[in-house]
Structures are given as C-alpha cells and as structure tokens.
Amino acid sequence: MEQSDNDIIQEILRGGHHGYAILLQRYRARVLSLTLRMIGHRADAEEAAQDAFIRAFRALRGFEQRARFSTWLYRIAYNTAVTYRQRQRMVTLPLDEEHDDTDAARIPPDRNLEYEELRKQVQKALDHLRPEYATLVTLFYLQDQSYDEIATITGLPLGTVKNRLHRARMELRAYVLKNYPSLEPTH
C-alpha cells in the first residue's frame, strides 16, 4: 500500500531522510506544471519549482495537516512563482507562434471529431490563456484542487476563483470552437 503524504512527513520530522524523495517524485511534475504556467519560461519555472520544494522541506514542521499536503505545497509553489515573476519582471510570451492556426492547420468541420485532435486543440488553447487563468485551470483540472483550496493557495476570494475559472473555460471553449464551427449551436 502506498504510504500517505502525512505518514511520510511524520517520518521526516522524526529525522528520516528518504521520505522526501518520494514526495518529490509524487509532486515534482505537478508543481512544475504550476510554476511553468505562471512563469512561462522553462528554466526559471524549474528553478522556482526546486526552490518551492526546498522551502517546503524547511517549513515542514509548520505543516499542521489541517489542509492536504498538496494544497500546502502548491501554496508555497504559487508564492515562490509570484516572487520569481516579480523579481525577474518576466514578460510571458504567447506560446502560439510556432503553431498558429493557419488554414492548413484547421481541422475540417466534422461532428465525428477525433478525441486526440480535440486534445491537441485544448493544449494549444491552454497555451493561449493568460497566466492567471491558466494557473487556475491547472490547479482545478490537473491538480484536483477544489474552489476553496484554490482560494487558499492563491489568496484570491472564492467568488473570484469561480468567476475566473468560468471565464477561463469560456475562453478555452471559444478557442477550440474556432476550429470546429459545426459544434456551435444553431439554436
């Protein structure tokens, strides 16, 4: 049976050294996906993710297990990424230049849309989203965080979280539907 996050943390706090490698393996990609969405630059995002893991380790004694470990960790990662973004004054470049939806790339309207194609379109749409929307989408759909947990992580009011997630999904849908007008309702 897989060891729970809290069991691993207790082991670390008793002086263990191997548990953190398991937590790293468990959350590395998720934390990186969050920092990457927020910072937009691969090397900086990776550095911010590493920094977040180091900060989390040093602060482990303060983790009171009132929230899930993942929520607590994402909050540290979110704050670290905010600091990186402010420090480096990064301008997030649109990621769509190399795969702009030219006519050649357009999928012919087809109701029997292949799911794989839709998935590719959703990835492109996600890259087009502004970072604050993409961050919330990442937390909600990829990291399985609830509205309340996202509010805790980002420090945003609950209503703002819901509103931005709704708008983000509208934008994603609009982007994808540009390529599939047949899905637009005629009623």
């Binding site: 990186l32 996906s33 998935r119 959703v122 990835q123 989408v137 990829l142 994808v176």
Partner: peptide
C-alpha cells in the same frame, strides 16, 4: 471531452 482533455493535459518532465 473538453473537461476530459483538460484533465489529461500531459505534465511537463523535469530535467
């Protein structure tokens, strides 16, 4: 499918 595609977004590989 849209929600499913979002949930199945591939996670980045760390170095």
């Amino acid at each position: 499918d849209l929600v499913r595609a979002l949930r199945e977004t591939p996670l980045p590989q760390a170095s």
